[in-house]
């Protein structure tokens, strides 16, 4: 499903002309199979978010290749990558990243709009998903009228709406209390089982990381597999 081979990346830090090159990803290689939940844990600055960004195509690694669904993505241009993301990835962010001017229903609908799906078809799919995440009663609420847990559920519904095979989650429970965190983790596990979805979860929370089938620890740009 996802093949990462010899991926390396450095960041230039400091004043222009006097930048220092700091390696953030050091020759990483690993694979993720379909239907697998993989968690990557590590401290802040360990490089875990950079790794997720390279998988998502938000940035291209300096070296190495990333193959998703049989397609090399590291060398894709911006337009092709956008289309690829739309077809293959769903995103769950720490701070939900919902559009404040759109209702829950409209937020979930957004990827389908971008995809060019007609309104009638969209509405059916969105309602079905909102029901699945237990938000059918608040579909016309704006994000600021929802609790953190509800917002993250909207965010998950938005990630699922295009039926992507892979969901990339960056600190999915980072902004939630422990009770809500459990709800979201259960939802992730049930979606993984029901839809055979692949999850890549970036977290610093061991409890969250432990719901994965495989757990990697990131330290100074290097990846170490841990036994669960």
């Amino acid at each position: 499903m996802i093949e990462i081979k010899n991926v390396s990346h450095t960041f230039a830090i400091g004043k222009k002309g006097k930048e220092k090159k700091v390696p953030v990803l050091k020759d990483l290689s690993f694979g993720i199979a379909r239907g697998e939940i993989v968690s990557i844990v590590g401290k802040s600055g360990s490089g875990k978010s950079t790794l997720l960004n390279t998988i998502a195509g938000f940035m291209a690694p300096e070296q190495g290749s990333i193959v998703v669904n049989g397609q090399e993505t590291a060398s894709m241009n911006e337009v092709t990558h956008a289309q690829f993301r739309l077809e293959n990835f769903g995103f769950i962010f720490q701070n939900f990243q919902l559009m404040p001017g759109l209702t829950a229903l409209e937020n979930v609908e957004l990827p389908l709009k971008i995809k060019g799906i007609p309104s009638a078809k969209r509405k059916v799919k969105v309602k079905e998903l909102l029901q699945q995440v237990g938000l059918e009663n608040v579909s016309d609420h704006y994000p600021n009228e929802l609790s953190g847990g509800q917002q993250q559920r909207v965010s998950i519904a938005r990630a699922l709406v295009t039926n992507p095979p892979i969901l990339l989650a960056d600190e999915p429970t980072g902004s939630l209390d422990s009770e809500t965190e459990q709800d979201i983790l259960l939802l992730i596990q049930s979606l993984n089982k029901a839809l055979n979805l692949t999850f890549v979860i970036i977290t610093h929370d061991e409890e969250v990381a432990n719901i994965a089938h495989r757990k990697f620890r990131m330290h100074d740009g290097e990846l170490v597999k841990e036994v669960l």
């Binding site: 998502a56 938000f58 911006e78 337009v79 956008a82 289309q83 993301r85 739309l86 077809e87 990835f89 995103f91 990243q97 559009m99 957004l110 990827p111 971008i114 995809k115 938005r158 295009t162």
Partner: peptide, 16 residues
């Protein structure tokens, strides 16, 4: 800016 970032993240092309 943030909204544009989200749109690009979820698959909106720069042309759109």
């Amino acid at each position: 800016t943030r909204e544009i970032g989200v749109m690009k993240a979820i698959g909106a092309s720069p042309k759109l």
